[in-house]
């Protein structure tokens, strides 16, 4: 029942955000990639820097209120918002903050992993974290956590990767910027099957509305993943 409720809430959110996009080019808020360090939820802008989580009230853009900085840990690299919750990717683990009071995020949990570079994205009750090895320690991987209890995430699956950076998820499609751009089919939330790979060195991606937006070290690429076909649409790259 809890799962169903979460799916319903998610669906409503997805439908709402899609309709905004269709109506105008000036929807409420946009969408960042998994490497983002800024995110906006309603009237609040949350940012992470190396140590801290900052909260700004942007209800009046001409009068931004800097309402709080809290020390999180070290090597905080990414921020991912979902359902009044922030997931922070750090070098040594994953932090979950509740936004029950959006002006004052409260830590729900910290789940440690080996030192690595590690963005996180979340869908339903699962968090997907890529761990890019720093070379001298454990091999790179994709780790999948059951986060149905935000206070106690449970590692449920590890898939080996080569050199993962950003990642994105949309329904049963998982996209990973590994040594090449990889597209996976997800089943049972935790099993993955490689469907396609593209020989581009992607840094980060956003899958949205059956289109994949990719940034690489030399520019921008766009793909479609409608109807189970992954096809190239366009690119803007360095000369």
């Amino acid at each position: 029942m809890k799962k169903l409720t979460a799916i319903l809430i998610l669906s409503v959110l997805l439908i709402a955000s899609c309709s905004f996009d269709k109506e105008t080019g000036t929807s409420e808020t946009g969408t960042g990639g998994s490497m983002a360090r800024f995110t906006i939820i309603n009237d609040y802008l949350y940012t992470v820097d190396f140590d801290n989580l900052n909260t700004f009230n942007i209800a009046t853009p001409t009068d931004i209120q800097n309402i709080g900085r809290q020390k999180v840990g070290f090597g905080i690299e990414t921020i991912f918002p979902i359902n009044n919750t922030l997931f922070l990717g750090a070098r040594n683990g994953m932090y979950i903050y509740s936004l029950q009071n959006p002006a004052a995020p409260v830590r729900q949990s910290f789940t440690s992993h080996f030192l690595s570079y590690d963005p996180v994205v979340v869908q339903g009750e699962y968090a997907y974290v890529t761990l890019r090895s720093m070379g001298w320690n454990r091999p790179s991987s994709l780790q999948i956590y059951d986060v149905s209890n935000l206070s106690n995430p449970i590692l449920v699956k590890i898939h080996p990767m080569l050199d993962p950076k950003g990642l994105g998820i949309d329904g049963n499609r998982l996209f990973i910027c590994d040594n090449v751009l990889k597209v996976y089919q997800i089943s049972n939330n935790i099993d993955i099957t490689l469907l396609a790979s593209f020989n581009i060195q992607a840094i980060d991606i956003i899958p949205k509305g059956e289109r994949l937006y990719v940034v690489t070290a030399n520019g921008f690429y766009q793909y479609s993943y409608a109807n189970n076909n992954i096809t190239f649409i366009s690119q803007i790259i360095m000369p």
């Binding site: 996009d21 105008t24 080019g25 000036t26 929807s27 946009g30 969408t31 960042g32 990639g33 490497m35 983002a36 360090r37 840094i203 980060d204 991606i205 956003i206 949205k208 937006y213 990719v214 940034v215 690489t216 070290a217 030399n218 520019g219 921008f220 803007i236 790259i237 360095m238 000369p239």
Partner: peptide, 18 residues
């Protein structure tokens, strides 16, 4: 201008910021 060191990507309607 041309890209020199592309990083973060952000979608906003039909606009993409890099």
């Amino acid at each position: 201008r041309d890209f020199t060191n592309p990083g973060k990507i952000y979608l906003y309607g039909d606009t993409i910021f890099i």
